[in-house]
Structure formats: C-alpha cells, structure tokens
C-alpha cells in the first residue's frame, strides 16, 4: 500500500519536473525574443538633406544623444551624402554623374543653408553669426560625433544614382541600405528624418 503511494508520488513528481522544465525553457526562449525586440537606448537619424542648417540639426541631436549615453546612428542618403563627401572626382564618370559632381557640394564646408543662401553669402553669414554666438561649427560637430562613436552609414543606392564613389566619402563611413537603417531604427526609442 505505502509502496504504491510512493510509486505514484514518484511518477507525479517526475511529470511535474518535466512540465516545469518545459515551461522554463519556453519562458527563457520567449524572454530572449522579447528582449531582442525591445527598444534600446538608441537614436536612429536619417540625414536626407544637404543643407548646412539641417546637417547641423542632425549632428547636434546626434552628439547630444551620444553624450547622454545613447547609441546613435546617422544614415546619409540623397542630398545628405554631400555632408560626408571628401572632394569630387570626375574621371570615369558618365555625363549625368559628372553633372551631379559639379552641381553638388564637394564637402560639408560648401553646404548652403536651406533658406536665405543668396548665392553663398547666407552660408558665410550664418557661419559667422554662429561662431560669434559660440555655436560649434558643422565640422567640429561632425568630428565630435565621430569621437563619441556615432555610427555613420552612407546609402549605396543614392551613391550609385549620383555617381558618388566610396573613395569620394570621408574615411570610416559604412555602406548600407534600407535594412541597415531599419535594423538600427527598430531598436531605437527615437528616430528622425532630417
């Protein structure tokens, strides 16, 4: 009699142990999955514009966020590629590609503001005023972003459209596309299109 009860208890204990183990492993798997998709302390910025003021906005947010301990990435696409250009080459390019190279800024020093450029005078005035008010220059902010470990990605599709070669970009740029940005953005609490 007592033996039968002990036997029964043993069986039920084994059964419970197995169920507990199954639940634990499912819980762990679910938790891993949830944690993988939870937003992290990150910011993902798209810099679409090739303007002095908008590039500054992107870099001020990027450097600010990085200083707050956030992990930051900036995805440069279309006109925004002008921000990370390091000169322009014409050799080996098609007519349209040459046109883009000639018409667009060669580097961030040549960017004009989105309003009141007046053939370049606006950019100089804006820079002068900002310097006077002790606002960091675009170049300083960019350098700062690098030092703070901001991830900088260039869009390969728009590079190809505009005939921008990887060698024409500043060193240290990563090359990516829409999924590169989205993988960053889906882990971010803040994402901006500038």
């Amino acid at each position: 009699m007592a033996e039968a009860i002990a036997q029964d208890l043993e069986t039920r204990l084994q059964e419970l142990t197995q169920r507990l183990e199954a639940l634990e492993s499912r819980y762990e798997k679910d938790m891993r999955r949830i944690q993988r998709h939870l937003p992290e302390n990150r910011v993902a910025i798209i810099c679409f514009s090739g303007n002095l003021d908008k590039a500054m906005a992107a870099l001020i947010i990027a450097t600010g966020a990085a200083s707050m301990g956030m992990q930051v990435s900036i995805f440069f696409t279309f006109w925004g590629l002008s921000v990370i250009k390091n000169g322009a080459q014409l050799r080996g390019k098609s007519f349209m590609e040459k046109l883009f190279s000639i018409m667009l800024p060669e580097n961030m020093r040549e960017l004009g503001p989105s309003q009141m450029n007046f053939g370049g005078i606006g950019a100089r005035m804006m820079r002068a005023i900002m310097r006077k008010k002790q606002v960091q220059s675009l170049e300083e902010l960019f350098q700062l972003a690098r030092e703070l470990g901001v991830r900088l990605v260039a869009c390969t599709m728009s590079m190809d459209v505009m005939g921008i070669r990887a060698e024409e970009l500043l060193p240290g740029m990563e090359l990516g596309g829409v999924a590169t940005y989205l993988a960053d953005a889906s882990k971010s609490k803040v994402t901006l299109f500038i």
Partner: peptide, 17 residues
C-alpha cells in the same frame, strides 16, 4: 552586387526572427 547588401542582410536577420 549592391555593396550595401552586406549590412542590409545582417540587419534583416537581426530584425526578422
């Protein structure tokens, strides 16, 4: 042939279970 596909496919696999 897209150079960006290297990071793109990494990003896809990171995001898609």
């Amino acid at each position: 042939t897209d150079r960006g596909s290297l990071l793109d496919f990494k990003g896809w696999a990171e995001t898609d279970d």
